[in-house]
Amino acid sequence: MSITDAELMAFVDGELSGADAERVSAAVSADPGLTARIEDERRLRTMLGDHLAPIAAEPVPENLTLMIAAAAAEETEQDMTDAPAGDPIREQPARVLNFATARAQRQADARAAKTVRAALSGNARRYWGTSAAIAASLVLGLVLGSQFADRGGVIERDGALVASGALAKGLDTQLASAGTDAMPLRMLASFRRSGGDFCRVFDGGRTSGIACKHEGRWTVERTVAGASVIAGEYRQAGSAQGELMAAAQGMAEGEPLDAAQEQAAQTKGWRGN
């Protein structure tokens, strides 16, 4: 019984089953020549695999993961804001990030956040005062940033978005006045809203927002996307923080908390009343 090259190849590749596989297997064990060829084929497979395996083991470059995360965030945003009924195959806008720009923007945002924090700790009153102009032109979209979505940082509870995981922990423990928060989550300011709840302005890099502690939960009241999420229309450096600060001013009763007030609020577990 003769075995063709194609059969032998299919056998090695696991493409044969049942009677065909048994037939080739029997022929191979009876013929040392065939056995040697099978071994050559298997070694070839191993050599090719070994040659290319290191690439799959490398860390994936950030530009690829960021691009996908941005698309996911964008899709979520669209689903939540303007998904029209009866148009399921609506074309996705072709927004592709330019990564160098996005990275530069993130760095600029980080610098701007530092400035904002410095302004707050130095002269909070002045900052609240000057941000009124920003508030006038404020448009805050509800953007669920991929960042916290990915990590389970935001969950839906009774129709509201509630912080969980790393975000909730940061809101509970990190102080804006400390100014030394580790990336990627920074606290920009804390304040009380009418009704007495404590609220915090946070910057998570790709997503920034305002969360207020109400009935024991951090409810995410606002989010804005950082530069890596909003493609096509890059914001000015720090504008996400500016918008949030303006929104915070609109929500706040009085001035933002100073360092001592913030510390006291944290000690009390951010319970407003």
């Binding site: 899709e75 979520t76 990915d150 969950i155």
Partner: peptide
């Protein structure tokens, strides 16, 4: 809020 299976 749903995650995005395609992107994941």
């Amino acid at each position: 809020m749903s995650t995005n299976p395609f992107c994941e």
